[in-house]
């Protein structure tokens, strides 16, 4: 009996400690975010730095985004046709593919891929710079590492993410068209016109872009924070990379729920 009590006490103590630790980190991350925003001025003045980061997180993620987008579109085309033709409305295939990509799959899947490709790379890069004392050296040379290293990477990610999501959706719709029109033989005109009739630019395309912008900010913030906060050892950096991917995925899905319920509620 007392043994059980001891175990329970230990479990509760552990939960309490973990919770306090999380809240502590959250506070630190918020302060870090504020400092990052305050010191972002240099990014505008030094657009070459920003350019390099758009290249690093955008261009290097291009292949995986395009290929995944195409495959997601192909699958949507197959599954969508299979379901829709049961109700005799195969012409609505275009609508279904476009709406699911623009509203949900485009922003969410592109952000998940972005987190595992670019986010982990950003964490690794900053974590390695910390481990090899490059950040300290920079600070010693009177150059603020947050302004010089962290801020450009954050804004590079924020800029790249909506562009990647747009490419992902476009590629997916192309994939759906390949399956639906080219392979199965749904009428080409009906495919596009039904799509165009029920997809609203402001409501669907624009909201999707807003979503991906917010996801991009969340993933980039998590990536730079985990890198900056990583323990300066090889093991610490690898833990930080794992945390980036896991936390990003959770943040994306949770944010998606919140944003969706704001954007698409009650309006058909």
């Amino acid at each position: 009996m007392t043994r059980l009590a001891v175990v329970f006490a230990a479990v509760f103590r552990r939960i309490g400690r973990e919770t306090i630790d999380r809240v502590w980190r959250l506070g630190y991350a918020s302060r870090f975010f504020l400092a990052l925003l305050c010191r972002s001025g240099a990014v505008c003045a030094r657009h070459r730095l920003l350019f390099r980061e758009v290249w690093f997180s955008g261009v290097l993620s291009l292949i995986i985004i395009l290929v995944s987008g195409l495959f997601v579109g192909l699958v949507l085309g197959l599954q969508g046709y299979e379901i829709l033709q049961r109700y005799g409305s195969a012409q609505a295939l275009g609508t279904m593919v476009a709406l699911s990509l623009l509203r949900e799959l485009g922003p969410v899947v592109a952000a998940l891929l972005f987190a595992s490709r670019a986010g982990s790379a950003i964490t690794a890069e900053i974590g390695l710079m910390k481990t090899t004392e490059q950040l300290k050296a920079m600070d010693m040379m009177a150059v603020d590492p947050v302004a010089r290293v962290v801020a450009p990477r954050f804004w590079g990610g924020v800029i790249s993410m909506p562009l990647l999501a747009a490419l992902f959706s476009a590629m997916g719709i192309f994939g759906g068209w390949l399956i639906g029109v080219v392979l199965i033989g749904v009428d080409d005109g009906a495919f596009w016109s039904s799509m165009q009739a029920s997809v609203d630019f402001r409501h669907d395309v624009w909201n999707g872009l807003v979503k991906s912008f917010i996801f991009g900010a969340a993933v980039s913030l998590i990536a730079v924070f985990e890198g900056y906060d990583a323990e300066p050892t090889a093991e610490g950096v690898s833990h930080a990379i794992t945390r980036t991917v896991v936390t990003s995925a959770l943040a994306i899905l949770a944010l998606d729920f919140v944003l969706t319920s704001f954007m698409f509620r009650g309006v058909s």
Partner: peptide, 20 residues
């Protein structure tokens, strides 16, 4: 990268959706 994204956005704006 930027040019391709712009093309994708134009495609989404003109071919996929409409300004209803």
């Amino acid at each position: 990268f930027v040019a391709a994204s712009m093309v994708a956005l134009l495609f989404l704006a003109l071919k996929v959706s409409s300004f209803s």
